[in-house]
Amino acid sequence: MPNRGDRGGSRTRAHIADVATGLFLERGFDDVTIAEVAAAAGVSKVTVFAHFAKKEDLLLDRLPDVVEIARAAVRERADDVGPVTAIRQTLLALAEERHGLSVLAEGIEPFLRIVVAAPTVIARLRVFEHEVEVALAEELASDRRFTGDAALLAGLVVAAYRVVVVATVRRRLGGDDLADIAAAHRQRLRRAFDAIEHGISAEPRPPARP
Rank of each mutant, 00 (worst) to 15 (best):
G148F: 05
A137M: 12
G155F: 02
V157L: 00
I114L: 15
H99W: 04
A78H: 07
A78Y: 06
V134D: 10
Y161Q: 10
V164K: 08
P64Y: 02
V169N: 07
V157A: 05
A160R: 07
I114S: 08
S102M: 05
I87D: 05
Q89N: 15
V115S: 07
S142I: 03
L152V: 14
A105P: 09
E96K: 06
E36K: 09
S102P: 03
T168K: 02
A117S: 15
A150N: 00
T47E: 12
A137L: 13
F52K: 06
P83H: 10
V115P: 11
V164I: 04
P64K: 07
V165G: 04
F146C: 07
R98V: 08
R170H: 12
T47Y: 03
E109S: 09
D80A: 05
E109A: 12
E76K: 13
V121D: 02
A105G: 12
R75I: 08
R98T: 11
K54Q: 14
R98D: 10
F128V: 11
A137W: 07
L63F: 14
E139P: 04
V43W: 12
T85W: 11
V164C: 06
L101W: 01
E129N: 14
L92N: 02
A39M: 05
L153D: 02
A151L: 09
V121Q: 06
V43H: 00
A154H: 04
I122P: 02
P110N: 00
S44P: 00
A154G: 04
R75M: 09
